[in-house]
Design a protein around this nucleic acid. Structure first.
Lengths: 336, 336
DNA sequence: TTGTATGCGTTATCAG
DNA sequence: CTGATAACGCATACAA
């Protein structure tokens, strides 16, 4: 007979009561030892010995029921195969681990019905908090559980943590200028909602205007438009086999990669003919070089801030929008 | 002082008892309605109405305590920023979701002490199962919780799910041959443990021998050797500015990417001078083209199988090693 | 079919 | 400082 047999699972191992009996002490004393409270040395030793003999395993459901604290945080993300979300999941999980908290991972695949279900599930599980990255416009914010969002501002009572998207846009414009670009464009595909990442464009435009750098903008709506819009845009801006732009700032690294493929098909070389800067800071295979030159989101800091904030819970003392600094990183799509 | 006597409950909302009182039925009836058991229509409606009025939220800690089932599975992974692990996390989470189970994500960062802690934590949480991808040689397998592993065989009582690494190796050799290669090599960096992925080499070697295709093998030990071993290897096999191999099979896509960079530095072009096949099936940004030509692991099937197996629990009726078929996918590192 | 009562493992209160 | 005991919210055996 192999392990895992025996259904239903026989009632899980010894309890505090068993330990108490084995050690010849009271139940409460065992609890105090387990929780590291002050206990007479002789008692502590007896309890620890009994725990060892019995192979006692602490049961968190009991504690959760009693204290209404689960030490668990739900993380709601569209997916985990996109490298940016993977990175976020990674750092949030580590930040929670440092604080002895657990992570309940919930993936929505951009399905709003599923998202609602997951929020309910989190409530049923009495998680201590929810960290949510969602583009659902009518997300129902639970009343009784602290919730923070990434990149999406809902209201002053729901803290939103985001990278400094505006400054990132400014940074990209200045960098392209510094690299000698004389005519640039910003390309983006995004949802229709007023999310924080939209400020990438605002920063870029604002800096271009200020520097007197000629620019254009091509923004498509992810839910409606096809990416072939970008083909059209690029073709319209080809003249004599050359692209009219010598610098591009693109909303995400992922889209940058797509655009670069399109440029290659048009015979435009990167970075020789046009230099490209993306956004996010995605590395090849997670730890190698940057996929493209990019504005790097401070993912570890975002994660840390989310965890810190959601566990802090006194939202009245917390800013409703927390903006973290970005940085520029060179990849192979700029000339430096 | 008792909780009920004047002190309002802190955050816990209404309970089944409250619903029962509100609906004018018994506690058990509420439970039966909530669990979808047979209940008279009039009663069901009264209960549902009361649930709605009170905003009752089911509390899973109570149920877990009572039934010793948490509907939660712990997933133990080295990290989530490596795209292969991210993919695995993604598909496992979806497979669990389909079965109304939750995922407790645990990252080890290859720290064995942390790994032990996490297993303990999973036991304390009374998870219904553990899915573990670890290279820890002396992992302590919990007695009382079904555990399955990915890529690492421990014993017949611990089911191991893996891709068909051997066939993948064979496939790579045959493909290189088919693509006209006349002298090939296999490069790998791996742990010293006897993991399933080691069979990639065995399959490759076996097929090369059978086809009479000249080959060499360069395997380094991840924990000890430096990647500069590969530089040496490549340099030793350069003659007259050309690489002696015209085909390479590399243990992972990630390493393939690294090797390709090294080749480029040596002035060797891919795929013109040497064709390269990796292993894993990593796509750019998770959903674009394959990073390199590759043997694709069936990640969704692996995830599905892990979840199915770990929840099934009758391990006596489960093979102790489950091998799933791989496939070849063209990237830009082969000529086709 | 519905009601009642008990206990799951823990924490916290109160009395010794 | 320790012992005893009452909840916490739920599922379920048993009684009606």
């Amino acid at each position: 007979m192999k392990r895992g047999d025996g259904i239903p699972r026989e009632h899980s191992g010894p309890t505090m009561a068993d330990v108490a009996k084995e050690a010849g002490v009271a139940l409460g004393t065992v609890s105090r030892v387990v929780n590291g409270e002050q206990v007479g040395e002789a008692f502590r030793e007896k309890v620890l010995a009994a725990i060892d003999r019995l192979g006692y395993k602490y049961n968190s459901s009991g504690r959760a029921l009693r204290t209404d604290e689960t030490n668990t945080v739900a993380v709601i993300m569209p997916n985990a195969d996109n490298p940016f979300f993977g990175l976020l999941v990674h750092h949030i999980c580590l930040a929670l681990g440092k604080r002895k908290r657990r992570m309940l991972l919930c993936l929505t695949e951009n399905d709003r019905a599923r998202e609602t279900e997951l929020i309910q599930m989190a409530q049923q599980n009495r998680v201590d908090g929810i960290i949510s990255l969602t583009y659902n416009p009518d997300l129902v914010i639970p009343e009784n559980i602290p919730l923070v969002t990434i990149d999406r501002f809902f209201s002053v009572s729901v803290p939103c943590i985001a990278a400094d998207n505006f400054s990132g846009g400014v940074m990209a414009a200045k960098k392209l200028r510094e690299l000698g670009c004389t005519r640039v464009a910003f390309l983006r595909a995004a949802s229709e909602l007023p999310t924080e990442p939209k400020k990438r464009k605002d920063g870029f435009v604002s800096a271009c205007v200020e520097m007197g750098l000629p620019f254009e903008v091509k923004a498509i709506v992810e839910e409606k438009d096809s990416f072939s819009e970008f083909d059209r845009f690029l073709q319209e801006h080809m003249s004599g086999g050359r692209l009219e732009f010598d610098g591009l700032f693109i909303g995400t690294d992922s889209l940058a990669w797509i655009i670069i493929k399109k440029l290659r098909e048009l015979g435009v070389r990167v970075p020789e003919d046009v230099q490209v800067i993306g956004f996010d800071g995605i590395r090849m295979f997670g730890n190698q070089e940057y996929a493209v030159s990019t504005i790097v989101q401070p993912v570890a800091e975002i994660a840390e801030t989310c965890v810190h904030t959601v566990l802090f819970r006194h939202f009245s003392n917390v800013p409703s929008l927390i903006i973290l600094p970005v940085s520029y990183a060179k990849g192979s799509t700029t000339r430096e």
